[in-house]
Simulated scan of single mutants.
Amino acid sequence: MGSRKRISNEKIQEANKSIAFAKLNNVPTSPRKMRLVADIIRGEEVQKALAILKFSKQHASDRLEKLLLSAIANWQAKNEDADVEEAGLFVKTITVDSARQLKRIRTAPQGRAHRIRKRSNHVTIVLGTKEDKVKAEDKK
């Protein structure tokens, strides 16, 4: 690896050390179904987002709730002396990307076959604090 790439990679790693995030790979749910739930909690405070996910009927909300709790735990590990309620954590960004597809065959009439695509996705949650929100609004 060249020195220029190494230096930029080190900058990215330093920036990621201050960010609390959690990532879930290869979730066997279609990305569209997961995005419907993710759009509901984007930008919400952490406690409100947990309540929304807990009482949501969608199957994807269970996995997102667990992922959000993991992101909170990651934030607490980096900020041991800080309190979650006082920090004012909120869901800064949440992205749902498509992952691998399992391709299966279903029989069809007259000797034909139809392809079934069993989709999966990757989910990433990044948490922010009140201070981050204020800084973002000041830049605008």
Rank of each mutant, 00 (worst) to 15 (best):
residue 3 S to L: 13
residue 3 S to F: 15
residue 6 R to S: 15
residue 6 R to T: 14
residue 7 I to E: 14
residue 7 I to S: 08
residue 8 S to V: 11
residue 8 S to T: 14
residue 9 N to Y: 15
residue 9 N to A: 13
residue 10 E to G: 06
residue 11 K to V: 13
residue 11 K to A: 14
residue 12 I to A: 12
residue 13 Q to E: 12
residue 13 Q to S: 03
residue 14 E to N: 05
residue 14 E to W: 09
residue 15 A to H: 11
residue 15 A to P: 03
residue 15 A to V: 00
residue 16 N to D: 14
residue 18 S to Y: 09
residue 18 S to I: 14
residue 20 A to V: 03
residue 21 F to Y: 15
residue 26 N to K: 13
residue 28 P to K: 11
residue 29 T to R: 11
residue 30 S to H: 07
residue 30 S to M: 07
residue 31 P to H: 03
residue 31 P to V: 10
residue 32 R to E: 09
residue 34 M to S: 06
residue 34 M to I: 13
residue 35 R to H: 07
residue 37 V to Q: 04
residue 40 I to C: 07
residue 40 I to L: 15
residue 44 E to W: 09
residue 48 K to E: 12
residue 49 A to E: 08
residue 50 L to A: 08
residue 52 I to Y: 08
residue 52 I to E: 01
residue 53 L to S: 02
residue 53 L to F: 10
residue 54 K to Y: 06
residue 55 F to N: 05
residue 56 S to I: 01
residue 56 S to G: 02
residue 58 Q to V: 08
residue 58 Q to I: 06
residue 59 H to R: 12
residue 59 H to I: 09
residue 60 A to E: 11
residue 64 L to Q: 04
residue 67 L to G: 05
residue 67 L to R: 00
residue 68 L to D: 07
residue 69 L to D: 01
residue 70 S to K: 06
residue 73 A to E: 00
residue 73 A to M: 02
residue 74 N to I: 01
residue 76 Q to K: 15
residue 76 Q to R: 08
residue 78 K to V: 00
residue 79 N to Y: 10
residue 79 N to A: 04
residue 80 E to R: 09
residue 80 E to K: 15
residue 81 D to V: 06
residue 82 A to C: 10
residue 83 D to Y: 03
residue 83 D to L: 07
residue 83 D to S: 13
residue 83 D to P: 03
residue 84 V to I: 08
residue 84 V to M: 04
residue 86 E to M: 06
residue 86 E to Y: 05
residue 88 G to R: 00
residue 89 L to R: 02
residue 90 F to N: 01
residue 91 V to A: 01
residue 93 T to F: 03
residue 94 I to L: 06
residue 94 I to N: 03
residue 95 T to M: 01
residue 95 T to C: 01
residue 96 V to R: 02
residue 98 S to D: 12
residue 100 R to Q: 09
residue 101 Q to P: 02
residue 101 Q to S: 04
residue 102 L to W: 11
residue 103 K to R: 13
residue 103 K to V: 15
residue 105 I to D: 10
residue 106 R to G: 04
residue 108 A to Q: 09
residue 108 A to R: 09
residue 109 P to G: 14
residue 109 P to D: 04
residue 110 Q to Y: 15
residue 111 G to M: 06
residue 115 R to Y: 05
residue 118 K to F: 06
residue 119 R to P: 08
residue 120 S to D: 05
residue 120 S to G: 07
residue 121 N to F: 10
residue 122 H to L: 08
residue 124 T to Y: 00
residue 124 T to I: 12
residue 124 T to K: 07
residue 125 I to K: 07
residue 125 I to L: 10
residue 126 V to T: 12
residue 126 V to W: 00
residue 129 T to E: 04
residue 130 K to W: 03
residue 131 E to M: 12
residue 133 K to C: 07
residue 136 A to Q: 02
residue 137 E to H: 03
residue 139 K to T: 10
